[in-house]
Computed example of a mutant assay.
Amino acid sequence: MTLYLYITAALIYGECTVGILLNGFIVATNFKNWRLPCDKILSCLATSRCLFLFYMMLLNVFFVFSPQLYRIPVFRSSVLMCTMLLSHTNFWLTTTLCVFYCVKITNYSHKFFTFLKTRISSLVHWFILASLLVSVASSLPCVWIADDGGQQNFTSSAAENTTFGKVMSKKETYNRLIMFLVGSFPPLLIFCVAIILLIHSLWVHIRHMGTGFGSPNLEVHFGAVKSMSLFLVLHVVYFVCMSVRQSPTNNTSWISVSSMVACIPPLLHSLYIIISTRKLKEELLKWFCGQ
């Protein structure tokens, strides 16, 4: 089992390193050429992902090399609060980005959509600030979750294969999961609604256009649907993996695998953003060509 943990830890370090480099590149490029409101959301999301991936690397060091730290309630509370804060921030910033694309691309005539479409650029800062505040508010209760109930089950033999569940009481583990779901489900729901509205707008547009499949506006719709569908799949994978990490499981393999897979969606989506965005792709090619 020790060899297995070392292998998964090495894979996690590799994924996190590549993800940090990709997201750092997005932040650096957007900072150098700051033009559109979506660049601000992307930069905040990329920064949040960099912090999350670095935190996952650090957490894995503790998990593999210093499992005895999880006997300390204060340490567990700190770890839980940081995990919730970074996860919820990623969820809300991701949802903010999707809502921005949905409002800018869809053609609904409802007053609320018209208001958002005309004000969305100026409201971006408030959306980002609200995302951060909601994430902090939903993470603060983690300070009071950790207890001493599970310490009596932590023995020297268990230290070799420690998991979060072995050093926490059942009440504490269920509270972790409930808090994660309560903080993560609302942005996931809004995310899904944004995609449904975008697909419905595309369908209405196709019906009005008839056979005009060469329309630039239609191509924008198709591109947005493809991008957001991929985004949704990666988002759901991330949500499931993080839920497994917070669930009351005593299986070290599940926690290691879920940690490894949870680092993949931020990496893949950041890579997709770079490839599908002309400014980022051109800048990346310049870096590789040494220009």
Rank of each mutant, 00 (worst) to 15 (best):
V124H: 04
I128T: 05
C142P: 01
F127P: 05
V124E: 10
E160P: 01
K111Q: 06
T114H: 07
R119C: 05
V143T: 07
S135A: 15
V136E: 04
V143S: 10
F127C: 10
I145G: 04
F154V: 14
S139K: 03
V134T: 11
I145D: 08
A159N: 11
Y108A: 01
A137S: 10
D148S: 13
I120E: 06
T155L: 06
S121N: 15
A146M: 01
N107Y: 10
A158E: 10
S139E: 00
I145C: 08
L123G: 01
L132T: 07
Q151F: 10
W144M: 09
S157Y: 06
F112W: 11
L116F: 09
Y108L: 06
C142L: 07
A146R: 01
S122K: 14
S109G: 13
K117S: 15
A137T: 12
L129I: 14
T118K: 14
I120W: 02
V143Q: 08
H110W: 08
D147K: 03
W144Y: 10
K111C: 05
S121E: 15
T114W: 05
A146H: 03
S122F: 12
Y108E: 08
F127N: 07
S135Q: 10
N153V: 05
S156C: 06
K117N: 09
D148I: 04
S122T: 11
L140D: 02
V134F: 11
L129H: 01
V143F: 15
R119D: 08
N161I: 13
A159W: 03
I128N: 06
S157V: 07
I145P: 05
I145M: 12
L133Y: 03
F127W: 14
A159Q: 12
L140G: 00
L129F: 13
F112H: 06
I128V: 14
T114A: 04
D147E: 12
K111Y: 10
H110E: 13
L140K: 02
G149Q: 01
W126N: 08
L123N: 00
L129P: 04
H110N: 12
H125M: 07
S131K: 02
W144C: 05
V134M: 12
S139G: 02
R119L: 00
V124M: 09
S121C: 10
D147G: 11
N107D: 14
V124G: 05
F113G: 06
I128S: 01
K111H: 05
G150V: 00
I120N: 06
S131C: 09
W126F: 12
V143K: 10
R119H: 14
H125T: 13
L116G: 03
S135L: 09
A159R: 09
H125G: 13
Q151Y: 09
F112G: 06
P141M: 04
I145Y: 12
A159L: 15
S109R: 13
S135F: 05
C142Y: 07
V134R: 00
A137N: 07
V134Q: 04
L140P: 04
D148M: 11
Y108G: 08
A137F: 13
N161A: 07
N107M: 06
L133D: 04
H125S: 12
F113A: 05
L129C: 08
S138M: 15
A158P: 00
H110L: 13
F127E: 05
F154C: 10
P141A: 02
L140Q: 02
F112M: 11
S156W: 07
S157F: 03
Q152V: 11
I128R: 01
G150H: 03
H110Q: 12
S109M: 07
S138P: 00
